[in-house]
């Protein structure tokens, strides 16, 4: 049957959770307690850092981010029948601690403590990293890659780390590198913000926007690979951490 969606099967059978303990969620000590519980009870399937294994990835999946507290609580407490996710005998308080940890895993990077030197990271961003060729912060920089002004305010830390070190693991939607040869003879090089059978939306290296109909395009080359280099080997471990620190501090709402 429709296996893709069965992980939620049976949730419906259980009563509403006890929300009296949900206030634990805001407490850093709960997050830490949740981390320890996770290591002993969950990491076997979901990986030591929640990155997934036999069970799904809990860091980047929409399942966690889009689920409300009650759904998460029920999933942990009662398991997911039809899957390998078992029910737990942990008391409600500890279940909430686990959820506090899960939420922290998925919290925007700006809200969590990140090691590294922010100023040094900024230097790398502006200088040897060459990041601004493609990315903009507060209007400064290129437009071939996603705007980073609110990166730390909108993305969890692990996603930022992954984007820096393993950029090809997950392509940012709407930034596929492409070359379009127009029937007019003109050639446009840039990224496709969007394309369909009928239309192309391209931003070129100069930041100009082109809204094209399919009938105007003679030939096209679209790359599935991210144009972003991996900084795994380009930077030292310390430099990587500094860059990640700087990126994690980027929040549109912090500049006020």
């Amino acid at each position: 049957m429709n296996a893709m969606l069965t992980w939620i099967l049976l949730l419906a059978q259980v009563g509403p959770p006890d929300f009296s303990k949900s206030n634990l969620m805001k407490d850093p000590a709960s997050v830490e307690a949740g981390r320890r519980l996770f290591a002993s009870a969950c990491s076997g399937c979901h990986g030591p850092g929640g990155e997934g294994g036999r069970g799904p990835n809990l860091m980047s999946g929409r399942q966690v981010r889009r689920s409300d507290d009650a759904t998460l609580f029920n999933s942990v407490k009662n398991g997911l029948p039809g899957t390998d996710m078992p029910p737990t005998k942990l008391p409600d308080e500890q279940v909430w601690q686990l959820i506090a940890f899960l939420r922290a895993l998925n919290a925007p990077a700006y809200e969590v403590i990140v090691s590294g030197n922010e100023a040094a990271g900024r230097e790398i961003f502006l200088g040897k990293g060459g990041c601004m060729k493609c990315h903009a912060v507060s209007g400064q920089g290129g437009s071939l890659g996603p705007d980073l002004t609110n990166l730390g305010g909108s993305r969890p830390l692990n996603q930022i780390r992954e984007a820096v070190l393993e950029p090809n693991k997950r392509l940012a939607e709407g930034y596929q590198p492409a070359v379009l040869h127009l029937k007019s003879g003109k050639t446009l090089t840039g990224v496709l913000r969007d394309y369909t059978n009928y239309t192309f939306t391209l931003v070129d290296n100069a930041g100009s926007l082109y809204l094209l109909r399919d009938s105007e395009v003679a030939d096209r080359q679209i790359t599935q690979k991210s144009p972003m280099p991996s900084y795994q080997d380009k930077l030292t471990k310390q430099e990587q951490q500094d860059l990640i620190k700087y990126l994690s501090r980027l929040s549109a709402r912090s500049t006020e």
Partner: peptide, 13 residues
Amino acid sequence: LHRKTGAILWHKK
């Protein structure tokens, strides 16, 4: 916001 890309230029409360 930049009108062609939607990039954030600033937020002011």
